[in-house]
Amino acid sequence: MSTNCRRRLIRDFKRLSTDPPGGISGSPCPDNIMLWNAVIFGPADTPFEDGTFKLLLTFEETYPTKPPTVKFLSRMFHPNVYANGELCLDILQNRWSPTYDVAAILTSIQSLLHDPNPNSPANAEAAQLYRENMKEYVRRVRATVEESWLDPEEHEKMAEGASGV
């Protein structure tokens, strides 16, 4: 395994565990440092408030030259999140810079919950409701917030990851 990649992931983990930005957490699977589970807590004063949204980050040897693949495991209703949980976020695509670490990635996703960009929709329905029917948008998002608290399938995946199965 590439030493740069490994060194960087270890450092990312140290930074995330000693000085975590508010409302996010993340750690590598015990048996595979290339796979990380993360949680983003829905930012206050947004429809996502109180949600505990789980994500999976998959790193390649080319990290940090290339970005990791990031997807939500929790079901999301957000203009910039595809149905399969993948995100449409510039810093994970054409604006990636190797200076972004895991904390920076998660913080960017957290602020995306705060400020969706309905102009580059990954979920057309969510984008439309966000623009035209805020009340319905909020109702749909709140449903995902409640699901995020109790989602047996996702919890099972997290447990598998944590126990190294």
Binding site: N4, R8, P98, T99, D101
Partner: peptide, 10 residues
């Protein structure tokens, strides 16, 4: 605005 420890590697 670049994190010092991150720049250090490069």
């Amino acid at each position: 605005g670049f994190e010092g420890s991150v720049c250090q590697d490069f």
